[in-house]
Amino acid sequence: MHLLEVENLTKNFGGVTALNEFSFSVDSHEIIAVIGPNGAGKSTLFNVITKIHPATNGIVKFKGEDITKLKAHDIAVKGVSRTFQDVRTLNEMTTLENIMIGCHRTTRTGLFSSFLYLPRVRKEIEHVKELSMKYLELVGLDKTDADKPAGALPYGARKLVELARALVSDPELLLLDEPATGLNDVEREHMAQLLFDLRKMGKTWILVEHQMEFVMGSSDRVIVLDFGNKIAEGTPDEIKKNPEAIAAYLGEEDYA
């Protein structure tokens, strides 16, 4: 059984087909990169899997279970965690709090024990803080950033905060929406190294990128999307030689 199976997924926005009968699957511990020029439907794919947008047609299965009809928060509870292309840190909260909210899925205390601040509530808060601090350091943020408002951090650091927020819930599947976009060379190098380390930890993720070179070294399998259609799938080496994939990218450069 695959961890994630996407079957004939179609998404129309009015008359525009953002995804057209798109199928693929992901196994545990596998790293998949979805690449393609801007507007190819990459972010739409994530938004449909996580139910920000409902699918027009097709099925998404997670661990064999059809999650197409589930609500966004239920999909997250099942263990699908994501980051956003346009960084969405909560800028008035501190950096640490931003990571702490990722623990919602793995914690349990309810309303009435919170009112009374029972010992287990205190214990949970301590645990969540410790864990979040661990992930804050894991993604390479500075300890002193923990109490700063997230909005005070530079863009690249906020991307790391978001990654830590997604990681802290120990997701079974991670969806990374353009983690390298908007980063400078140093930050991009750091992100690549970080993903390399995470891979050794046995995480599973799908990565959306339009920078080909960023994904080539770090993926098991690459899927090329263009205008909502899958035009190629294979190992990075195969994709490098695939004429259609190259054409799609040459096309993009023509526009640029």
Binding site: A72, H73, L90, I101, H104, R108, S114, Y117
Partner: peptide
């Protein structure tokens, strides 16, 4: 007490961004 707990944190997340809230599993 509520403000410090998991419940309060969920409320504050909703205030910050509802899409982020549901992406971490909060039933908005």
């Amino acid at each position: 007490h509520l403000g410090r707990s998991r419940f309060g944190r969920a409320l504050k997340t909703i205030k910050g961004n509802e899409m982020v809230a549901s992406s971490v599993g909060i039933n908005v």
